[in-house]
């Protein structure tokens, strides 16, 4: 019985703010709910590594690469290895670790080499990952 309290009128701006919040919440619930229903997080990541650019730097060369995750499962602590030279007898091997590559997303990194990878066989691959 709080009849002595004057209740402030609900302003138009308040309805807009509340509506925005409700819309945002529904969107979040829909996206996460879909994930929950389809069990997408249980999928294993599918990682594709490709070289983007090769640039010389002070200590030699750097190969910029991009890791694309083709699955919806997230990979953490992704180790990337790059090899130059013939497969049987590689000239040089380098590796880098990415914190994580989210599902259906990509991440970039770089590998350092002493030798020039240009004009040679350059093989990039993901060695492994940690399940988050």
């Amino acid at each position: 019985m709080a009849s002595d309290r004057k209740s402030p009128p609900t302003s138009a701006l308040e309805w807009i703010a509340a509506g925005l919040g409700l819309a945002g919440l529904l969107f979040v619930v829909a996206v996460i709910g879909r994930e929950a229903l389809t069990g997408e997080t249980a999928q294993l990541p599918v990682l594709e590594v490709r070289a983007e650019r090769v640039l010389p730097n002070a200590a030699g060369f750097v190969v910029e690469f991009e890791v694309v995750n083709r699955s919806s499962g997230t990979a953490a602590a992704v180790e990337i290895e790059g090899q130059i030279g013939p497969e049987a007898n590689p000239v040089e091997t380098s590796s880098a670790t990415l914190d994580y590559v989210a599902g259906d997303a990509s991440a970039k990194g770089g590998l350092f080499f002493k030798h020039d990878p240009r004009g040679q066989r350059l093989a990039l691959r993901a060695l492994g990952f940690q399940t988050p």
Partner: peptide, 13 residues
Amino acid sequence: MLDAFAAYAVGMI
């Protein structure tokens, strides 16, 4: 409830 929705909107934005 309206204020809670508005607070969540502010948090998200």
